[in-house]
C-alpha cells in the first residue's frame, strides 16, 4: 500500500439531461494509486453531495468486469488506457502525478446521452431480442454433453460468448459500428450444433436490427478489437460477413 497520493486534473463531461447542452467540467482531485477509477468518481460524488451539488451520473454494477455496465471513455479510449479490462478494473496507479484525464460518455447516434456519463444502450438489447437465443423444446432435461463438440470449436464459441455487451466497440469505432458486438453474438451460436436450426434467420434478423438502430458500417480499422475488454476477435466479424451472405443467398426469405 502506498500512501503517496496522486494529484490529478479531471475534465468530466456534465450534461443535465438528454436534450441539454453539456460541457467538460474541471475537478482537481487527490487519490491513492490503489483506488480504482470508479472509487475515485465515488469520492468526487461524496464531496459534491456534501456541498449540495449534483453528483456525477455514471453506470456501474458488478465492479469486477463481468456485467458490462461501466463504460467510460478515458482520454479518448473506452475503458481507459490498459488493454483487456473494463473501467471498473482500472486502477489509478496507471496514471502519473499531475496528469489531466478526460472522462467522456460513449459517443454514438445510437447511444444518446441521458445524463452526464450515462448513455442509453438499449439498441444493443434490441439486436439481442431478435436473435440472441436458441429455441429448445420443452420436456425432459437433456443429458449434458450428449452432442459431441470439438474442443477447439467449443473454445471459439466460448471466446465469442465472453462478450459482456458493454458497447466499447461502438464507442471506439470511428464509424460507431456495432459489428464486433453483433459478430460475437452471432458467432457464439453459429459455431455450435444447437445454433444451426436458426442460423440463417438469426444472422439476417440481427444485421437488419443493427442497421435499423443507426450504427455506422464497419471499415475494418480493427479499433474495436484493440479496445474490447474481453478481447473479442475480428475473426468473428469475418464469420458474420460469411454467414450473412451465405444466408442472403440461400435463405428462402425473399422480402
Amino acid at each position: 500500500m502506498s500512501d503517496v497520493k496522486l494529484k490529478l486534473k479531471l475534465k468530466i463531461w456534465r450534461q443535465p439531461g438528454s436534450d441539454a447542452v453539456g460541457k467538460l467540467v474541471d475537478y482537481d482531485v487527490e487519490v491513492s494509486p490503489d483506488d480504482s477509477f470508479l472509487e475515485m468518481l465515488d469520492q468526487i460524488n461524496e464531496s459534491l453531495e456534501k456541498n449540495n451539488q449534483e453528483p456525477i451520473v455514471f453506470e456501474s454494477d458488478c465492479r469486477e468486469g463481468i456485467c458490462g455496465a461501466c463504460g467510460l471513455v478515458i482520454n479518448g479510449q473506452p475503458h481507459g488506457p490498459v488493454p483487456r479490462i473494463t473501467t471498473c478494473q482500472l486502477h489509478m496507479r496507471h496514471f502519473k502525478n499531475g496528469d489531466t484525464i478526460y472522462v467522456e460518455p460513449f459517443r454514438a447516434k445510437a447511444f444518446p446521452v441521458l445524463k452526464d456519463l450515462l448513455v442509453d444502450r438499449t439498441p444493443l438489447d434490441k439486436i439481442l431480442q431478435v436473435g440472441g437465443f436458441v429455441s429448445i423444446n420443452t420436456g425432459g432435461v437433456p443429458d449434458a454433453n450428449e452432442i459431441p463438440i470439438a474442443k477447439d470449436v467449443a473454445a471459439q464459441s466460448f471466446d465469442a460468448a465472453a462478450c459482456i455487451g458493454c458497447g466499447a466497440c461502438v464507442a471506439s469505432c470511428k464509424n460507431a459500428s456495432a459489428m464486433l458486438f453483433v459478430s460475437a453474438k452471432v458467432s457464439q451460436y453459429a459455431l455450435l450444433p444447437q445454433g444451426q436450426p436458426e442460423r440463417q434467420r438469426r444472422v439476417e434478423a440481427m444485421v437488419k436490427a443493427m442497421d435499423e438502430q443507426g450504427f455506422g458500417s464497419c471499415t475494418n480499422t480493427y479499433a474495436c478489437e484493440a479496445e474490447c475488454p474481453k478481447g473479442i476477435s475480428i475473426s468473428n466479424i469475418a464469420r458474420l460477413n460469411r454467414d450473412f451472405f451465405s444466408a442472403k443467398l440461400k435463405s428462402k426469405n425473399v422480402s
Binding site: G76, Q77, E104, K109, T221, E227
Partner: peptide, 27 residues
C-alpha cells in the same frame, strides 16, 4: 458510406486516441 458513418457519431470526442487502436492507413 463516409457520409452515413459520419452521421453515426454526431458528437465528437474531446480527445481523439485513434492512433492507439488503429493504423493511419485504415483511418
Amino acid at each position: 458510406l463516409w457520409v452515413e458513418n459520419k452521421k453515426a457519431r454526431p458528437v465528437k470526442y474531446a480527445v481523439n486516441a485513434s492512433s492507439k487502436n488503429s493504423t493511419i492507413f485504415s483511418r
